[in-house]
C-alpha cells in the first residue's frame, strides 16, 4: 500500500487522472486507447518500474466493461490500479504478457469469463472452463445451462414436496 503522496513523475504524467483511493493505492483511469501505453510506461519505462502484476480482472457495469490492472512494487510498498472502460459490444485489450509474464493466466480467465478479447495472447485457451463452453459466465446476462444433462436442475431437488406428492415412493 502506498503511504506517501503521489510521486512527482506520476503526478506530472497523469495530472488529474490519478487519485488516491481509500486503501492507499493510487488509481489511474485511462481510456481504452491509452491503456497499453500506460501499462508499458508503468511496467517497463518508469524508473523504478512496477514490476509485480498482482491481478487483472474485468467488471461488468451493465452497459460497459471495466478492465482493472493491479500493479505493485513490493520493495517500496507502492501499489497502483489502472482502470479502463470498454464498450460492451466488442471489448478488447492488448496483451501485457511481454511486460509481465504472469499476465497470461489472468488474461485467459478474463477471456473465458467475460469474453474480453485479448489481442496477441500467446496461449488463448480456456483456463478454468472446459473446452467448448458456450457463453461467458461472469457477465450479468449469463443464462444458466438448464438444458445440459449434467448441470441442469430438476424438479425433484427444486420442489421436493410437490415432486414426491406426484411421484409417491412405493414401499
Amino acid at each position: 500500500m502506498s503511504d506517501d503522496a503521489i510521486p512527482t513523475d506520476l503526478a506530472e504524467r497523469f495530472a488529474d487522472g490519478i487519485t488516491t483511493a481509500a486503501d492507499g493505492a493510487w488509481e489511474i483511469a485511462v481510456s481504452a486507447e491509452q491503456l497499453r501505453e500506460t501499462l508499458a510506461f508503468l511496467g517497463a519505462d518508469r524508473q523504478p518500474a512496477f514490476d509485480y502484476l498482482v491481478d487483472i480482472f474485468a467488471v461488468d457495469y451493465g452497459e460497459q466493461f471495466e478492465v482493472v490492472y493491479h500493479l505493485s512494487r513490493p520493495r517500496t510498498h507502492e501499489m497502483v490500479r489502472v482502470c479502463s472502460r470498454l464498450s460492451r459490444q466488442k471489448p478488447s485489450v492488448q496483451t501485457v504478457t511481454d511486460i509481465w509474464a504472469g499476465a497470461s493466466w489472468p488474461e485467459r480467465e478474463m477471456m473465458e469469463m467475460y469474453g474480453v478479447a485479448v489481442e496477441g495472447h500467446p496461449d488463448p485457451r480456456n483456463l478454468l472452463l472446459p473446452e467448448g463452453w458456450k457463453g461467458y459466465p461472469l457477465r450479468k446476462d449469463y443464462e444458466y445451462p438448464d438444458d445440459h444433462p449434467w448441470l441442469s436442475r430438476d424438479e425433484l431437488h427444486d420442489k421436493p414436496g410437490e415432486y414426491l406428492k406426484q411421484h409417491p415412493v412405493e414401499e
Binding site: 478454468l128 472452463l129 459466465p137 449469463y142 444458466y144 445451462p145 444433462p149 449434467w150 448441470l151 441442469s152 436442475r153 430438476d154 431437488h157
Partner: peptide
C-alpha cells in the same frame, strides 16, 4: 449426491455424480 451447496447457482458443478 446431488451437487450439494452448489445445486442452486453454480453453472459448472454436476448436480450429483449419478448423472454420469
Amino acid at each position: 449426491v446431488s451437487g450439494g451447496r452448489f445445486y442452486q447457482d453454480a453453472y459448472s458443478v454436476v448436480k450429483g455424480v449419478d448423472r454420469i
